[in-house]
């Protein structure tokens, strides 16, 4: 299969290794990988702040860049959820782009969803000895309905002990611009999330959205409780090296 990567704005700028590793894993599974030029961002940050017109132009750029792709895979439940959940409303008055948006919706997947549900490859042969816990990001869970896929991938990692995260369903308080617009509320939320991560007894916190992980790890670091945080892709990548 020819897979186009959607390198989300956050990983592109802050965590390029996540995108690179995703490319490696997909290649390892025997697929051709490309990264269409011109892609930047799903537009969620503006959309969720109410700047719909700005969001629409950013979304249009993304749609255009993947127009010729067969399949689009991204390392974020939130960005993919933005496409699936909101693009139809964003382009409801533009039939041409509405059609293109729907094409993109039909061919785009969050990484774990793609590997497990589409490729049916829950076992990537990874080894990683650690105690880890997993934060189910809100948009992946509630908007995309991703439940089992990431867990299946993790259950197949040899040596990995997966510990339950108390109150896992609670949002970490990131919420994109929410974290800077309502910083105190956001801090209270991430403080509680951090508390649960610490009581889980895990050495590593895993997730499938760098936004949430950036938030939680940033807080843990500030309070000097640096629990390692990793995207599932990073853990798989490390585990597949051995």
């Amino acid at each position: 299969m020819k897979v186009s990567l959607f390198a989300t704005c956050l990983t592109n700028a802050f965590y390029p290794e996540v995108d690179l590793t995703m490319a490696k894993i997909l290649k390892h599974l025997g697929h051709t990988v490309d990264v269409p030029e011109g892609q930047v961002c799903c537009g969620q940050i503006a959309f969720n702040s109410g700047y719909v017109d700005d969001a629409r132009e950013v979304a249009r750029t993304l749609i255009d860049s993947f127009e010729r792709s067969e399949v689009v895979v991204g390392p974020s439940g939130s960005c993919i959820a933005m496409i699936h959940h909101y693009y139809p409303t964003l382009f409801e008055k533009e039939p041409v782009y509405l059609k293109k948006a729907e094409d993109l919706i039909h061919k785009s997947y969050e990484f774990t969803q793609f590997v497990v549900d589409v490729l049916n490859k829950p076992d990537l042969g990874a080894h990683y000895k650690a105690k880890a816990t997993y934060h189910p990001s809100c948009h992946a869970t509630r908007l995309l309905g991703i439940g089992e896929a990431p867990l299946k991938l993790l259950q197949h990692v040899k040596g990995l002990e997966l510990l339950p995260l108390p109150e896992a369903q609670l949002c970490c308080g990131f919420g994109g611009t929410f974290s800077v617009k309502m910083p105190k509320i956001s801090e209270a939320m991430v403080a509680e999330k951090a508390e649960h991560v610490l009581t889980s007894g895990a050495d590593i916190l895993l997730g499938l959205d760098m936004g949430c992980l950036m938030n939680i790890s940033g807080y843990l670091e500030k309070i000097n409780k640096p629990v390692k945080t990793m995207h599932i892709i990073q853990l798989l990548g490390e585990g597949m090296k051995s």
Partner: peptide, 24 residues
């Protein structure tokens, strides 16, 4: 500001020396 709203309670990772699109 508004970055400081974040850094008051959290650290932020560094902007990578090269973005992924450039690396690729």
């Amino acid at each position: 500001a508004p970055l400081s709203n974040w850094t008051k309670s959290r650290t932020l990772p560094m902007v990578a020396p090269k973005p992924f699109m450039q690396i690729w």
